[in-house]
Computed example of a mutant assay.
Amino acid sequence: MTAHSHDPQWGRGGVLPVLLAPQAPTPMPRLSRSVPPVLCAILIVYAGSAHALGPPTPASALEIVIKWAPLLLGGFAFNILISLLAMALGTLAGFGLGLLLISEQVLARRAAWSVMQFFRNAPWLVLLFFAMFLIPFRITVMGVTIPLPDWVKAVIGFALPVMANVAEILRGAVASIPSTQWEAAESLALSRRQTVWLVILPQCFKRMLPSWMNLYALITMATVQASIVGVSEMLTITAQVHAAEGGRTDLFAPLYGFALLCFFLYCYPIDYMTARLERRFNVR
């Protein structure tokens, strides 16, 4: 037995074991360079589809007002139409009532004064309700049936206070004419009718105009009351638009603020011109 036969470094049978070189770890599979862009594209498409399928973002208040602005302005134009017709009808009736107020006939003057006081001091909304429920839906004249829609009744309802106020404006303008004008007309041998039509009324025009314009501005602002009796004017359409947008609380102020802005931009120039005419004509 050799001396190195008992060396622990020797294996059984005297054969020296062979040490193998350490093997390299198995390489991980590498991703292609085109895979990350493809994954990003998939994620973007998925995120976009998820956003599209999700609940839509509510439109802003400004977008809602712009979208419905043509319809709202159409309702505002209808308000202006009602005010113009009511002012025209009330002015004609009020002019005749005012002439009765300055009549020499005592009975005619007292009757006109009673009518003027009644309609001048009655609430406009109450007169509007009376016009809506007392005026028939249609009338027949010589076999011809004429329908009377709600907006026509609203025109008549607003014309009643206009009539009373125009009559008072005319009476006040005639009373403001100096008595020397009546005396000068009498010295020219003019009749009372000639004096009124040729001397007094021409001088009343500039005295009546500022008050008449102020009355028109008041009637224009009062036409929104027609929405209470079912007339589809701007305020009614505004409420319908608000309901169509789901009744969002954040739309209440912008929608009704738009209606307020329309009336302000229309009525403020009238008030401004009224003040200028008062200064120009020196109306007291």
Rank of each mutant, 00 (worst) to 15 (best):
F133W: 08
S5F: 02
S60M: 02
R110L: 14
L84P: 02
P37I: 08
R33D: 05
S49K: 01
Q105E: 06
A93Q: 12
W68Q: 11
G94N: 04
L101H: 04
A41R: 02
V115Y: 07
A52R: 13
A77V: 10
L127V: 09
V65R: 07
Q117F: 06
L99W: 06
Q105W: 11
A41H: 00
V106H: 06
W10L: 15
W68D: 15
P36V: 04
S103Y: 02
H6D: 13
R120F: 03
L16T: 09
W124S: 14
I82T: 12
H4A: 09
A59E: 10
S114G: 15
I80W: 00
L125R: 06
G13R: 02
S83K: 03
M28S: 01
G54Y: 04
A47C: 07
F133Y: 15
L72W: 12
A108V: 02
G13P: 00
W10Q: 12
A111I: 15
R33W: 10
L43A: 15
A131V: 10
L85H: 01
V126Q: 09
P22G: 03
T26Q: 00
P56E: 06
S60E: 03
F129A: 00
L53S: 07
S5T: 09
C40K: 09
F76P: 06
L99D: 11
I44D: 00
L134Q: 13
Q105N: 14
R12L: 13
W68S: 13
P29F: 12
F118H: 10
E104L: 06
L20Y: 12
L20H: 04
S5Y: 03
A52E: 06
L97F: 15
L71M: 12
G98A: 10
L99T: 03
L127G: 02
G11T: 11
F129G: 00
P27W: 01
A21L: 10
T57L: 14
M132L: 14
M116S: 12
L39E: 04
A108N: 05
I82E: 01
P29D: 11
L43D: 01
F133S: 05
L39P: 13
I102R: 07
R120I: 01
A77W: 05
L73F: 14
I66E: 06
G74T: 09
L16Q: 07
L72H: 09
P136Y: 07
L97W: 14
G11A: 08
A50R: 14
N121T: 15
L16A: 11
S49Y: 10
M116W: 02
P70D: 08
S49R: 02
M132E: 06
I44V: 10
N121A: 15
